[in-house]
């Protein structure tokens, strides 16, 4: 034990003696080397803290590259799928807009046919004066037929819209159109090609002649724009049902 204590003291003494500054060439060299070592340690610690992939080995880099590749492929597939669904949604929107426009056009023409929308355009105003009250329903119906034959698209008589279901009956002191009594003078407004309609009214044996033959008077005015503003409400058909059709028109 005492010998060991002695050894220890001798070692400490040696350490202190070595620690004394001795400006020899060896000390200077050793100091330089130690300086370089310290610098290298600090540099390496710093480098390790900042570097990401650079100190990784080849197999680790390959693994990371594989992962990145897989991620890239997955994301590319996702982009593809999203792009597809975007295109599909866009074309859906486009076809939806087209379908809506077509439906709107159809609705407009059907509304004019059914008399649920006012219409305007070139046409004629036919005024039938009947002082002797001898114009009958069949004569008015003939007038209507002549107008339709000449291509009239929208017709009203004394502010009553004439549609497919309109009917004429003779009533007390006048004519009943679809159940509504009207009396002379009868003012027929028709939209169509003005000159065709006017000539259809005035042909020999036509409406003008017929009215004149019963003692009335018919005047035709051709106008660039007439308005058929009378409306007719459409009631739901009680018996008729549409037959499902496979063809789309």
């Amino acid at each position: 034990m005492s010998t060991q204590g002695h050894d220890s003291q001798r070692s400490w003494r040696r350490l202190r003696r070595a620690g004394k500054p001795r400006p020899t060439k060896g000390t200077v060299l050793a100091t330089l080397l130690a300086l370089g070592l310290g610098f290298a340690i600090a540099a390496q610690v710093h480098q390790t803290s900042i570097e990401g992939l650079e100190d990784l080995r080849e197999d680790e880099l390959i693994r990371i590259l594989d992962t990145v590749d897989q991620d890239g492929n997955r994301l590319a597939e996702e982009i593809q799928a999203l792009r597809l669904s975007r295109d599909r949604l866009q074309s859906d929107t486009t076809s939806l807009t087209e379908a809506r426009e077509a439906a709107q056009q159809r609705l407009d023409s059907l509304a004019i046919l059914a008399g649920t929308a006012p219409a305007k355009g070139p046409g004629i105003v036919l005024t039938i004066r009947d002082p002797e009250n001898r114009v009958t329903a069949p004569l008015l119906l003939d007038t209507l037929q002549e107008l339709r034959d000449a291509g009239a698209e929208a017709i009203e008589i004394n502010s009553i819209r004439v549609v497919a279901s309109t009917f004429f009956t003779d009533g007390e002191g006048g004519i009943s159109i679809s159940g509504t009594e009207v009396s002379a003078p009868y003012v027929v407004t028709a939209i169509g090609d003005g000159s065709t309609l006017a000539s259809a009214m005035e042909i020999p044996g036509g409406v003008t002649n017929s009215v004149r033959s019963v003692g009335g008077e018919a005047g035709v005015e051709t106008k660039d724009e007439v308005t058929v503003s009378a409306l007719r409400s459409v009631s739901e058909p009680q018996y008729a049902r549409p037959v499902p059709s496979s063809t789309t028109s």
Binding site: A18, G19, K20, P21, T27, A30, T31, L32, L33, A34, L35, G36, L37, G38, F39, A40, I41, A42, A43, Q44, V45, H46, Q47, E51, E54, D55
Partner: peptide
């Protein structure tokens, strides 16, 4: 003693300068 001081000084200088280790030296 002086070399030990050199070691400490080297570490301090390295920490302060934050040197970039050149690429060719990095593996070694």
């Amino acid at each position: 003693m002086i070399p030990a001081l050199g070691l400490v000084v080297g570490i301090v200088v390295g920490v302060l300068l934050q040197p970039e280790v050149p690429l060719w030296l990095q593996p070694y």
